[in-house]
Design a protein around this nucleic acid. Structure first.
Lengths: 117, 117
DNA sequence: GAATGAAGTTTCCATTTGGTAACTAAAAGA
DNA sequence: TCTTTTAGTTACCAAATGGAAACTTCATTC
């Protein structure tokens, strides 16, 4: 009988792995872009939609809620004319910036070598 | 009539964005882990399966092929008893290490604050 | 009192993703 | 010749992902 590679119970990249843990935060579509824009300045919902043309309201909401739950961003309702909501990075969120900056840096090299322009 | 947010033609994070470009390389399941293991030493297919218990042969093959096509890893067939295949990072692949290292670093902080252990 | 703008929510749907299991090919060893 | 090992491939399937469009709520403004 052929050697069976024994089945594994975990099936996913290990939860306790820092790499996997962090990628689960940065993973979804638009997520790094969103954090990147918020690192420049606090932004409102509709401003973020302009920052990232193409993102749907549904996904933007999902990302904002998820990142808030993870303690990465902070949500504040401002008592303005029609009440607006401002999002900003928390201290934890700010810790993600070096990682995203490193990704951006490599992204430039990839673009040059891959000639996507 | 309600204001319609005009439909957008792009629908996806912009291709020319370095962040999106790089995330498309690091994006798939197991990808950062795979690059991380290869950064330590060149590895064979079956060794990588041991390194990452839980990864399926199908996905490992897919990742290796994709990363090879993107110039991130190098594939070499060794003329051994049953021929073995060794994978290693290219120079371009090595450029990804600082980014992954930065992600790992934040991952540790996330783990501590989130208490996932 | 109808319209407007902000910030979502909900429904529906197609695509993508990744897992399991079984199968293949080539070469060497018993 | 039959089995083992390495390195995959293929078929099938279920869950997750994310987009489009329409609807909602609340408070102001015309």
């Amino acid at each position: 009988m052929a050697l069976k590679v024994r089945k594994n119970q975990s099936k996913l990249p290990p939860e306790q792995c820092p790499l996997t843990e962090c990628m689960s935060v940065l993973g979804g579509a638009w997520t790094p872009n969103l954090i990147w824009y918020l690192s420049a300045a606090p932004r409102r919902f509709s401003e973020l939609r302009v920052d990232m043309p193409g993102i749907s309201a549904k996904i933007l909401t999902t990302r904002l809620r998820d990142l808030e739950a993870k303690g990465v961003i902070f949500r504040e309702v401002k008592p303005t004319s029609p009440p607006s909501v401002e999002y900003s990075l928390t201290e934890l969120g700010a810790e993600l910036i070096p990682a995203i900056a490193a990704i951006v840096k490599v992204g430039h090299k990839l673009k040059m070598l891959h000639g996507k322009e």
